[in-house]
Amino acid sequence: MKLNDRYIKATLAGIPYLLPYGQLIADPAPATRLNDSGALLWDGILEGDSREELLALLADRYHATEREHAALAEDVDQYLHSLCRMGILLADTPESRGDDTPPLFYRIGPLVFSYRGPSLLYDRFFSAFSCEEEDFDQEVLILTGKPASIPYGAVLIHTEELTICDSGSSYCFFFAAPWGIREMHVKKDGSRAVLYRMPDPDDMHLEDLFHALRFAFLILTQQKELYVLHSASFLYRGRAFLVSGSSGTGKSTHSALWHDLYQTPLLNGDLNLLGIRNSIPYAYGLPWCGTSGICTPKDYPLGGIIFLKQAAIDQVQSLQPDEKVLHILQRMISPAWTKELLLRNLHFSEALAPLIFSCRLYCTKEPSAARTLKAAIDAL
């Protein structure tokens, strides 16, 4: 059994109470008055006593007979259950207990995920990536309610929409109210993600849950030497080509030009997962694809990355080695919340840059832009 460390036992005018402090004051959590038995059991829990030891403690206090043990056992169980229900005792919280429903599984690139949560969310966003039950890299658990413990830690990132904290062994995410999410805890090695959502009988926030899970995905992939680039992508000559640039530059527009002119399949409208396998760079399909709705569960060798910049004419400009690394690094959305995480991104950018074609494309929104880039790729 584990206690929520946001409670203390105090005596008020001779009466024992459990008093919340810190964030539990803001939540708010109630003060709890203890009777003699409750105070005795609380002291036992503080000493680390098991249920059987607590029962023995109570029986010794009241000199209980064998016939009275059953009633005392019921009292102990009711007391422990009450503490759990109020979030004071963490032994039987949903996070530690888990979900009794069978998990669903999906595969993204080389990674497998175990999922317990709303089936509608899975069907809408992950079903194309579903796979048979097998060993998994990350366990995803979506619960309704509040976590029993609140491991805030040091603030890493804070915006109006999101606050990310380092709690030691995990990252904690706190979302703005419109997300319909209370918070999410993700182990630093990416092996487990627990998301706590608000009651949502109409499933209005399924898309918000889906986007929140992307953060857990990014943590795991970075640990596995896989990185996500903000980019649209299309397939040409059996290789994935990524088109990247700041929002509004025309990534989707340029990819659509290739599709219209050369019937190149579109792979993703917003994000691409990259990795290096046996010295060959690959682009892996993702379910996250912005508002485009364009995604694929397949993976392909990576042909190149094109960095767009709007211009009055169409022109391909080569990049210096340092510019290639910097451009890749700046278009990543993999975590860079600490120096260590940033260096992970940098090392991958340095490894990837020499292996692929990359350039700056000054371009219009006309078909000539696709023709200009195609000529440069074909000339390789």
Rank of each mutant, 00 (worst) to 15 (best):
K324Q: 15
S368H: 10
E133V: 07
T221R: 07
Q222P: 10
T32R: 14
P287T: 03
P178C: 04
P287H: 06
M204T: 01
R237S: 13
L90Q: 00
P103M: 08
L162V: 07
I142A: 04
M332S: 13
G22R: 06
T264D: 14
A177N: 05
M198F: 09
R182H: 14
G303E: 09
P335K: 04
D208L: 00
D137P: 05
V140R: 13
S149R: 11
A26S: 07
G109N: 02
Q330L: 13
A154Y: 09
L242S: 03
A379Q: 15
L55E: 13
Y284R: 03
E366G: 03
A91G: 14
F105N: 06
M332K: 03
L273F: 08
R33V: 15
S127Y: 07
E68Y: 05
L326Q: 11
W288M: 11
R239T: 09
I25D: 10
P147F: 04
D378H: 06
A71S: 13
V186T: 14
S334P: 07
F125K: 08
I276V: 14
P354Q: 07
R197G: 09
C289M: 04
V316K: 09
I157P: 02
L120R: 02
R6A: 10
D260N: 00
P30F: 12
R182Q: 08
C131Q: 10
R182Y: 11
K2C: 06
Y17L: 13
